[in-house]
């Protein structure tokens, strides 16, 4: 049997808005994922450390403070440094579309903004991880 998908949900930076991430956490849990929630005020280092230790398949970061252009690239960079860039990094928050495109170019996965549903988020993670897993097999 395939193991459950493990996902780390994280709140980086100083932002305290945790409604979205808690809703997402509950929805992922109800959809059968193993969910680890970091709690508030995590540095990029703490998040990457936790992701590696917990051996997760994906990291979901929530940023509503506007610091996304600093924090997403930083986590991505650290994942690469630690050889853990097989972990999918996606997220959500108050993020202008332009920035989204820039971040996606850098290698960040999909970013969800207010109005996104939990089911589309879950579908996205399942699908993306499913594809990654297939690629691994071919290799």
């Amino acid at each position: 049997m395939q193991r459950k998908i493990r996902i780390l949900l994280a709140k980086p930076g100083l932002d305290g808005h945790d409604r979205g991430i808690k809703v997402i956490a509950a929805a992922f849990r109800d959809a059968g994922f193993e969910v680890i929630y970091t709690g508030l005020r995590q540095t990029a280092e703490m998040i990457v450390e936790a992701a590696i230790q917990e051996d997760v398949d994906a990291i979901g970061m929530s940023i509503l403070s506007g610091a996304h252009m600093t924090l997403f690239p930083r986590v991505l960079e650290l994942l690469k440094e630690k050889g853990a860039d097989h972990i999918l990094l996606f997220g959500g928050g108050i993020i202008p579309q332009e920035d989204m495109a820039k971040l996606e170019k850098m290698g960040v996965g999909k970013l969800f903004t207010p109005g996104a549903t939990t089911s589309e988020t879950i579908e996205y993670v399942k699908k993306t991880l499913g594809e990654n897993r297939k690629e691994e097999k071919i290799l």
Binding site: G13, L14, T43, S65, G66, A67, M69, T70, L71
Partner: peptide, 10 residues
């Protein structure tokens, strides 16, 4: 260091 990227943003 904790302020990095957050100054004047919100």
């Amino acid at each position: 260091p904790r302020s990095l990227g957050e100054v004047g943003i919100c």
